[in-house]
Amino acid sequence: MKNLLFTAALAVILLGHAATATAQKAESKIPVYAEIGLGLNKTLYFGDTRAKLNQALGGSAKPGTGNNILAGFYVAPQKWRGLGVGSRISGSFGAPVEGDFGDDYIFNCYNLALAAKYYVLSREFGRGLYVRGSAGFGQLTTKRFDEETNFYRHQYALGTSFMGGIGYTVPLKGFSLGLETEFETASRSGTVDGLGDTTFRSGQVGVNVILGF
């Protein structure tokens, strides 16, 4: 799955470059904006996800904190008055937390989504206050390190996720700098011994610094 997501990320970047090149050749240029970002997150469990992870891994832990990394692009013609649509790939990488039995427990997510961003006050893409939404698919990976056996137990799940965010962008010379908060909710399915196919509902809240160009 990681290879698939890395391939998808490369496709996003190449598609962005292709769209930019096409726009530059057209008589009426279509603005294409790219972004990369880093941030901090807090993992969220919804419903009985922690109990399911406990059964899957033989132990669990409270949700921890971690880091976000993201990249994306938006097509935003001027006549759309601040609206841009495109694609976004992101990863949330949790720092190890101490589990129920003193072992390390790690929680990571990867996501590729269709995204839209709208600058609500300026009506100019890349300037001022904006709201963002995205819907996509991805993978949940959880790992528990058992010190007695010196072995990682893994649980994987695939499914959909939805993200919403609000932020502010300051245009600078040749690039822009933004700060945003986001919320994610996801429903992903995986197979657990003794339970069969199981749905894990999770998410995160995060803060990201965004570099646009």
Rank of each mutant, 00 (worst) to 15 (best):
N3M: 05
N3Q: 12
L4P: 00
L4Q: 14
L5G: 06
L5Y: 11
A8P: 04
V12P: 04
I13E: 06
H17C: 10
A19C: 09
A21C: 03
A23S: 15
A23E: 06
A23W: 07
A23F: 06
Q24D: 13
A26Y: 00
E27W: 06
S28C: 02
K29W: 12
K29N: 09
K29F: 11
I30Q: 02
I30P: 00
P31I: 01
Y33M: 06
A34W: 10
A34H: 15
E35I: 04
I36D: 00
I36T: 10
L40W: 09
L44A: 08
Y45T: 01
F46Q: 04
G47A: 12
D48K: 11
T49N: 07
R50Y: 01
N54G: 15
N54E: 14
N54K: 08
Q55E: 14
L57D: 10
G58K: 01
G59S: 10
G59T: 08
A61L: 02
K62N: 15
G64V: 02
G64L: 05
T65E: 05
T65P: 00
N67S: 13
N68E: 06
L70F: 14
G72S: 05
F73A: 12
V75S: 04
P77F: 08
W80P: 03
G82S: 06
V85K: 04
S87E: 08
S87H: 07
G91M: 14
G94P: 02
G94Y: 01
V97M: 08
V97I: 11
F101M: 06
D103C: 04
D104V: 00
Y105S: 11
I106P: 03
I106M: 11
F107E: 14
N108C: 05
C109A: 12
C109T: 13
Y110A: 12
Y110D: 10
L112A: 14
L112M: 11
L112S: 08
A115N: 11
K117Q: 15
V120Q: 03
S122W: 07
S122H: 07
E124G: 03
F125Q: 07
G126R: 09
G126P: 04
L129V: 14
G133P: 06
G133L: 01
S134M: 04
G138A: 05
L140R: 12
L140T: 05
F145L: 10
F145M: 05
D146I: 12
E147H: 12
E148A: 15
T149G: 00
F151L: 08
Y152M: 05
R153Y: 15
Q155H: 15
A157Q: 08
A157V: 01
T160N: 07
S161Q: 13
S161H: 06
G164D: 06
G164I: 11
G165T: 03
I166C: 07
G167M: 04
G167L: 02
T169N: 14
V170G: 00
G174I: 01
L177W: 07
G178C: 07
L179D: 01
L179T: 13
T181G: 15
E182R: 13
E182I: 03
F183G: 10
F183P: 00
E184W: 00
T185W: 10
S187V: 04
S189R: 14
D193T: 14
D193P: 00
G194D: 11
G194A: 10
G196Y: 00
F200C: 08
F200R: 03
R201W: 04
S202C: 05
Q204E: 08
V207H: 00
N208I: 11
V209R: 01
V209H: 02
I210E: 04
G212Q: 13
F213D: 02
F213P: 04
